[in-house]
Design a protein around this nucleic acid. Sequence first.
DNA 1: ACAAAAGTGTTCGTCTTACACCCATGC
DNA 2: GCATGGGTGTAAGACGAACACTTTTGT
Lengths: 294, 294
Amino acid sequence: MSIDSVQAELIAVLVAVTNGDARVLTVESGFALPSGQLEPDHRSLQTGLRAWVERQTHHPLGYVEQLYTFADQLRGHHSRNVSISYLALSREAASTYPDASWVSWYRYFPWEDRRQGIGLMQNVILPRLLTWCGASAERRQRMGRLFGDERRWNDELVLERYEFLFGAGLIPEALRGQATAAAALPGLEMTHDHRRILATGMARLRAKIKYRPVVFELLAKSFTMLELQQTMEALAGQELHKPNFRRLITQQELVEETGEFTSGLAGRPAKLFRFRPSVIEERSLSGTKLPLVK
Amino acid sequence: MSIDSVQAELIAVLVAVTNGDARVLTVESGFALPSGQLEPDHRSLQTGLRAWVERQTHHPLGYVEQLYTFADQLRGHHSRNVSISYLALSREAASTYPDASWVSWYRYFPWEDRRQGIGLMQNVILPRLLTWCGASAERRQRMGRLFGDERRWNDELVLERYEFLFGAGLIPEALRGQATAAAALPGLEMTHDHRRILATGMARLRAKIKYRPVVFELLAKSFTMLELQQTMEALAGQELHKPNFRRLITQQELVEETGEFTSGLAGRPAKLFRFRPSVIEERSLSGTKLPLVK
DNA sequence: ACAAAAGTGTTCGTCTTACACCCATGC
DNA sequence: GCATGGGTGTAAGACGAACACTTTTGT
């Protein structure tokens, strides 16, 4: 039972939604997620991450949640790198530090955005997956469950879909060090397994918004129903049924009217709402619900 | 950006269900969860845990899932201990290694078992919590949501309830190093924050069985509907409505008849079922549902 | 015969989904 | 007037919970 020398690193999936666009904070021109070494004066992992991100972005972090921990074995050494990844919600800050940029997460996962139709899916991805499946009934079945069927698309399977595509050799990260450079799918590449970590964060957030009122961390203090809906849609990558969305939100008494209205835009002025702070506690114990597509 | 010296430790919440009793593997006479140092020859954390538990219990591990990672700051040192906790499902093995024992998890959390009535809750816990709440409406409200109300008890809030009791000073672990030794609640103590880790594992498992068919990791190859139901009840700490339970399970086509029957017991012989292996994949993507109480 | 457990049918009410429609503003 | 977005009512249907009842064994 030898005692191992280990380094601990924090990796953040920091999400904001701006203009109906779900974005992550990246470094190295979008090629990496921000990460940093755990420092000895941090009392806990969470405070360590918080301090570190706030120093970088000059913006207070809202919700923070641990995602996953994994260990890389450093070749040749008896040393090891433990990476602890976090999901954090924020709003896009004016002053991000140099070299950092907010990038739409759908640039890394174009197939996860179904709001503008599913042409990419049907014309590019499905055909290539089908050839990879070949005669294997098992592969076809799993493919059907992950990707198929317009109706009953499960938005939470981001990671599973990524790993399926990875296994099918359609993800550049999977091909590193291999000669077979099969043409990759549309979608930006990332260093190491950062794209996998991002997929984990997306999946977690898509699941989370359905039973905890974390969306409000992504919105301004007051907002219209449409803004709220479009934020949800940006995260889910799907359109929602407007009338039912309104009802669901109001029924749950998550929000209250501010008394103000929007103006100057097309259409009838919309009521402005604010989040009822008293429900932060409550809802975390019961659950928030969403209507299904369109 | 100083590089920190870190040790990594694995902690397991290893669960089995035997005779309608949900149990965890413990060491030190039930005072600690099994844990071990991460060794350099483990390729990943998961395989490290797997190898380590299988060596200890001589039983193959079924389902394994990461729970949470936290860091202790070692006083006086510039050194740090990173603990990575796991939930693992197994069946009780004949040969566990010396000093290890399976203990019902309700011995640590008696209030989480509502199958034999809720006398403890009503007679001991609620009165003491009420005095602690005093006039604070906020505390009372939160208490009501976590503990109250017979009807609409949420079985997944194991950790939240533990932390509420912790905050109320009713958990011995909270009082260490303090003079005020208020009489603690029934329920075994554990070292460090192992009881909190166990609570995390219980909560995760109670949530998991509702949307992934992991229960089958805990059962023999063939089983009756009643055995399946009692296993679920042991985990949930609640009784389920028998006729509806049957229907829900059969409707979902999770199981198939083996053709065999039980015999020798009281009552009408029961059909034996086996889990349909083909659904391991499927269900992990859709979901399993359960009826509510009694 | 009776207790104990297995197993089935059906009703009632709620929640989800979808459709249809009216309202208020800018151009 | 008409396009755009805001907002409400309601009916069809799926699903969950509860109740009543029949069947098959051991003692």
